[in-house]
């Protein structure tokens, strides 16, 4: 007997929650307990009185699983609102990465040239290394990291995705 795989989709969810101890554990735990995937997760307090955090979760699953992810998140007492941005369409998502590249001579020049193309900024430099800051879609960052891999990439730190709906409506 073999386990069968099904077609999956990638969805970006925006979740507002109480800014309380243990909330992240509840959310992460719900995903593992029910066998759902977290591709990326970012969380930060977004209110003046520190009462509410906004979590952006990128998840993959079959359409039925995505529907359940939203419903199960909604069941958590500390969760105020869950919005499936992918389902709604028309949203912006951005990610930031810090990329360390080591090399000398021609490699350094090539690294700077590519960084320019990708609008990456140099945030640290030594005679043998650069740290680039690059912002954009996850695909753009993937591509930048892939290119740097050929030049002297040694380390990457990524923030995960932050996302927001386009237009004047606020959630």
């Amino acid at each position: 007997m073999h386990i069968q795989q099904q077609e999956t989709e990638r969805h970006t969810l925006s979740v507002t929650v109480d800014n309380e101890a243990g909330v992240l554990a509840r959310i992460a735990g719900m995903f593992t307990a029910r066998g759902y995937n977290i591709d990326s997760l970012t969380v930060a307090d977004v209110t003046e009185d520190d009462s509410i955090s906004r979590i952006t979760i990128v998840t993959t699953g079959t359409p039925a699983v995505i529907e359940q992810v939203v419903a199960q998140l909604d069941r958590l007492i500390n969760v105020h609102r869950v919005i499936d941005l992918t389902e709604r369409g028309n949203f912006v998502e951005r990610e930031l990465a810090l990329v360390k590249v080591v090399g000398t001579g021609e490699h350094r020049i090539e690294a700077l040239r590519l960084a320019d193309v990708y609008r990456a900024r140099v945030v640290d430099a030594t005679t043998g290394s650069f740290v680039f800051e690059v912002t954009g879609s996850s695909e753009k960052i993937d591509k930048f990291i892939e290119l740097m891999g050929e030049i002297g990439l040694v380390e990457v730190a990524r923030t995960g995705v932050a996302a927001i709906a386009r237009g004047k409506e606020a959630v």
């Binding site: 039925a64 529907e67 359940q68 419903a71 199960q72 909604d74 069941r75």
Partner: peptide, 10 residues
């Protein structure tokens, strides 16, 4: 419970 809807049977 909204989570019970379409969980197993559509």
């Amino acid at each position: 419970d909204r989570g019970s809807i379409n969980k197993i049977v559509r």
